[in-house]
C-alpha cells in the first residue's frame, strides 16, 4: 500500500485525510463535495482510502521492479486511475496512481517519463499534474471531449511554461474505427518517443474504446487491443532498454471486452504470442452463467459487430489532420537542435 508520503507526492494532505475520514464514515457530507467524493461517480465506500492507496502501491511496486532491473516490464491492471486530481476525486478515480508513479520515478530514479494513455477518456489528471514539466511527456489518445467526459484533451493543450510542447493530445472523432485509430496511435507514439527519448515508458491501458463499451462512442474492436501493447513493447526495447510499466484504466464492458483486451496486454508484455482462435471453453463455461450478455467465442471480434459507420471517410480524414497538426511542432523542429538530451 502506498504510504501517505508517497500519495502526497501528488495529492494534498488535506485530501488524503478527507478520503481516509470518508472511508471511516466520518466526513461530513458538505465537506465531501469539495473533494469530489460522495457523488454518483465517486461514492463513498468503507475503507476507500486503503483500497485506493493499495492500487497506487501496486503501481509503485511495478515501477520499482522495472527500475531496479528485476524485470524488464511490469503490469498493474488495478491501476490507471488517470482522472484523480491533486485535491479532488473525479471520474471514478480517487488517487491517481500514474501521477504518483511518475513523480516517484522522477524523485527516486531521476527518470524522464513518457506517459501514453489509450483510454477512451482524456487522461486529464496526469496531464495537469505535469503540465509545466519538460521532464515528463504525456500523450493521450481519446474520444473527442466535445461531449464525452472530461471534456478536455484538445490538441491545443500542449503544456505551459517550460513544459510547453511536452503535452500531446489526439482527440479522435466519435465512431472512429480500428484503422484510423491505429494509424493515429502508431504515428504519434512512434514520432513522440523519438522526439522525447524517455528513460521509461508508462502506458495506461483503459479498455473502453471498444464498440461495446457502454460509456463511450468509439467503434474499435479487439484489433486495437492486440496492437496497442505490441507497439509499446517494441518502442520500450528500442528506446528504453525495455523499461515499460503498464497499468489498467477504464473499461466498462467487463464481460466481452476487458478480459480479452487485458489478457492480450499481458501476453504481449510477457513475450508470448498474442492469442488467436477460440476462447477457452472452460472460461466460457465458468462465466457465461454470470454474464448478462453473450460472451464472445473467440479472441478476435468477427466482422460486422456494428452497422457500417456512415461518415467513415470524413472521420478518418479528420483524425489524420488532427495527428498532422499535433506533430507539426516536432516535425518542423527535426532539423534544428531543440531536442532534449
Amino acid at each position: 500500500m502506498a504510504t501517505d508520503q508517497e500519495l502526497e507526492l501528488i495529492h494534498d494532505p488535506a485530501y488524503v485525510n478527507a478520503v481516509r475520514l470518508a472511508g471511516k464514515g466520518k466526513l461530513p457530507k458538505e465537506k465531501a463535495g469539495n473533494f469530489g467524493i460522495g457523488t454518483e461517480d465517486t461514492p463513498i465506500f468503507p475503507g476507500m482510502h486503503e483500497a485506493s492507496a493499495l492500487l497506487v502501491g501496486g503501481t509503485l511496486q511495478a515501477v520499482d521492479y522495472v527500475m531496479t532491473g528485476k524485470s524488464q516490464h511490469a503490469l498493474n491492471l488495478g491501476g490507471g486511475l488517470h482522472h484523480g486530481f491533486r485535491g479532488k476525486a473525479s471520474g471514478f478515480c480517487i488517487y491517481n496512481d500514474s501521477s504518483v508513479a511518475i513523480k516517484y520515478l522522477q524523485e527516486k530514479y531521476h527518470a524522464r517519463v513518457l506517459y501514453v494513455d489509450t483510454d477512451a477518456h482524456h487522461g486529464d489528471g496526469v496531464q495537469w499534474s505535469f503540465y509545466d514539466d519538460p521532464e515528463v511527456c504525456t500523450l493521450s489518445i481519446h474520444e473527442t471531449g466535445r461531449y464525452l467526459f472530461p471534456g478536455t484533451g484538445n490538441i491545443n493543450e500542449r503544456g505551459q511554461g517550460k513544459g510547453y510542447g511536452y503535452s500531446f493530445n489526439i482527440p479522435v472523432d466519435a465512431f472512429t474505427e480500428d484503422d484510423s485509430w491505429l494509424e493515429s496511435y502508431t504515428t504519434a507514439f512512434t514520432e513522440i518517443v523519438e522526439f522525447f527519448k524517455p528513460d521509461v515508458i508508462l502506458t495506461q491501458n483503459g479498455a473502453d474504446s471498444h464498440y461495446f463499451d457502454p460509456l463511450t462512442h468509439l467503434s474499435a474492436t479487439m484489433r486495437i487491443y492486440r496492437e496497442i501493447p505490441r507497439l509499446a513493447h517494441k518502442l520500450a526495447h528500442q528506446y528504453c532498454e525495455g523499461r515499460w510499466v503498464a497499468v489498467g484504466g477504464g473499461g466498462y464492458d467487463i464481460w466481452r471486452v476487458v478480459p480479452r483486451a487485458w489478457s492480450m496486454l499481458w501476453m504481449e508484455m510477457s513475450s508470448n504470442p498474442t492469442p488467436t482462435g477460440p476462447l477457452s471453453p472452460e472460461w466460457l463455461d465458468t462465466w457465461q452463467p454470470d454474464s448478462p450478455v453473450t460472451l464472445p467465442q473467440s479472441w478476435d471480434d468477427p466482422e460486422g459487430i456494428y452497422e457500417p459507420i456512415p461518415r467513415r471517410p470524413e472521420i478518418t480524414e479528420k483524425n489524420t489532420l488532427t495527428v498532422e497538426k499535433l506533430l507539426y511542432p516536432i516535425r518542423s523542429n527535426q532539423s534544428s537542435s531543440v531536442k532534449p538530451t
Partner: peptide, 22 residues
C-alpha cells in the same frame, strides 16, 4: 498488499485480491 507474480523473466504481473476492494 500486492504480490508480484514473476511469470517470465521479462515481466511481472502485480496482483492482489485486495485490489477488488476498490
Amino acid at each position: 498488499p500486492s504480490r508480484y507474480l514473476p511469470m517470465t523473466k521479462d515481466a511481472v504481473f502485480v496482483f492482489s485480491e485486495e485490489l477488488l476492494t476498490y
